[in-house]
Measured scan of single mutants.
Amino acid sequence: KAKLLVLLYAFVATDADTICIGYHANNSTDTVDTILEKNVAVTHSVNLLEDSHNGKLCKLKGIAPLQLGKCNITGWLLGNPECDSLLPARSWSYIVETPNSENGACYPGDLIDYEELREQLSSVSSLERFEIFPKESSWPNHTFNGVTVSCSHRGKSSFYRNLLWLTKKGDSYPKLTNSYVNNKGKEVLVLWGVHHPSSSDEQQSLYSNGNAYVSVASSNYNRRFTPEIAARPKVRDQHGRMNYYWTLLEPGDTIIFEATGNLIAPWYAFALSRGFESGIITSNASMHECNTKCQTPQGAINSNLPFQNIHPVTIGECPKYVRSTKLRMVTGLRNIPSIQYRGLFGAIAGFIEGGWTGMIDGWYGYHHQNEQGSGYAADQKSTQNAINGITNKVNSVIEKMNTQFTAVGKEFNNLEKRMENLNKKVDDGFLDIWTYNAELLVLLENERTLDFHDLNVKNLYEKVKSQLKNNAKEIGNGCFEFYHKCDNECMESVRNGTYDYPKYSEESKLNR
């Protein structure tokens, strides 16, 4: 008799109507990190870190770059004969040098303040090359056809396309004075040089004057150069050297050249137009028929994500570079809930034993079982409120962090190594801060989002509990077992918050 009662009780308990509160689960393989956990499985997430590029040089917003090819900045601007293909260059979106560009200054020497000139050019998007001192009329008392084997072109001695090597005419090199007034309405880049012979005999042979000088002056520039005559090792078949100089001439300003020898005179100059998204990159990537809004030396990035880990040097509207390998923000729920887990921000989770793959029309909802059958029903209101809140948060985070910009490298010469090392340390410090901030932001927001979901499920549970009161009992896994019969209409009233407690209280009292 006792065995019969136990079996009867078990049958009745199993047959009781139930309603459970749960949440969506799926077959997603997404994982995120939080402050407290690593690799948390979630139903949905968004990636904030771009880690792919196309490996190509592309047009930037429809404008092609200027590819210097086998030449570098120095060779292009001075007019190395091997860089003749660059003479027609007028406009570009950015400038590309190759790491091993070999054609710079063909006659050995240095372009002074080269690093600063590169910085200036990094904001130039177009130029006009014009004859600042016409070759045939500007130097009537001097020979202007100086050439050298060091600047050979097609097997013949030649010289820079933008400079003139002035030497004596006959047996004399009379003092020369020439000036140019900038009437271009924009900055003009003027380049010139000073020749330093290897011996007094060479000085006399070329310029006749043993104590020659070169003077260059404008409103913002004033220097006097004296040739340094000295024996030097042979470089590119030359014992002599040429140093090259430049200045930016403001609109309306005048530049005056005065010399008694050794002047490498300007022939062509450049009127410059600035462009905020221009820059110089060093890259071996090849040019393709493609378009982008962000270019790196590795390749083009076409992404609206706020961060990238491809390269710190970028041109155009680019994500911020960070050292992170993963920045994924959760938008959905835990896919593998932890039992009795309390989140960092106070939300209680884990009283549900598992997510439901059968509930596909919402994030949170119900599963019921009664004599009429069983089924899932999503709670659309709480789901939609959660979707709206999380979507707004993700968009806000992306908008705040998605300050796209150009980031170019800084140039230092060989004598500025300590400054370069200090600059690298400062840049590394800023990069570490950006990386830390980005990672911390994602970790915190992921923790908040998961706790937010847990709290929403808990609130749904409490909503049902407050309606049923003692007409049902909690069975410990997020479910309630009714003390009365609850048909589909009754189940719907529980879900929509209109459950009639008094209607079922007498039946429940008897069954309790």
Score class of each variant (00 low, 15 high):
S52T: 08
L117I: 14
G275N: 15
A41T: 11
C71T: 04
D113Q: 13
Y207S: 06
A269T: 02
E97F: 12
P227D: 00
K169F: 11
S101K: 00
D17C: 07
I255D: 02
A2W: 13
L66T: 11
E115S: 10
N243F: 15
K70N: 10
C83G: 01
D51F: 02
D110R: 09
I132T: 04
L206K: 10
N178W: 00
G146N: 12
E136P: 06
C20F: 05
L121S: 03
I73L: 15
N145P: 08
T14F: 01
K156P: 02
F257N: 00
I95W: 10
G210Y: 09
P233V: 15
T177W: 11
S205H: 11
N145K: 06
S215M: 14
K175M: 13
I19G: 03
T282E: 07
P65F: 05
A2E: 03
C83K: 06
H24C: 06
S172W: 13
V6T: 11
I264E: 00
L36T: 15
Q238W: 01
P88R: 09
V214T: 10
A259I: 06
D51L: 11
E82A: 15
T167M: 10
Y221T: 10
T254V: 15
L49P: 08
P65N: 06
L66F: 08
L57P: 09
M242C: 05
F276L: 13
L4C: 02
L57K: 06
N39Y: 04
E119K: 14
G185A: 13
K1S: 12
Y221G: 01
V194C: 06
L66K: 07
S123L: 08
I264C: 03
Y107D: 03
N39L: 03
I229C: 12
N209R: 13
A269D: 01
S273A: 12
A89L: 13
Y244S: 05
I132N: 11
G193Q: 08
N211A: 14
P266Q: 07
Y23M: 11
L5E: 00
C58Y: 13
E228L: 09
E228N: 06
S278C: 01
V96P: 03
F225S: 09
T18F: 02
Q203R: 00
E228Q: 13
D84W: 02
E50S: 03
V40Q: 12
R154I: 11
I35M: 15
I264L: 15
N80L: 07
S218G: 13
L78E: 05
E258K: 09
A10F: 14
C58M: 12
S52K: 12
L166F: 00
D113P: 02
V216Q: 06
S219H: 12
D51I: 08
R129M: 10
Y207G: 03
F11L: 14
Y107M: 10
C151W: 11
E258W: 03
C20L: 09
S152P: 14
H44Q: 12
S200N: 05
F225R: 02
S137F: 06
V181T: 15
K3E: 09
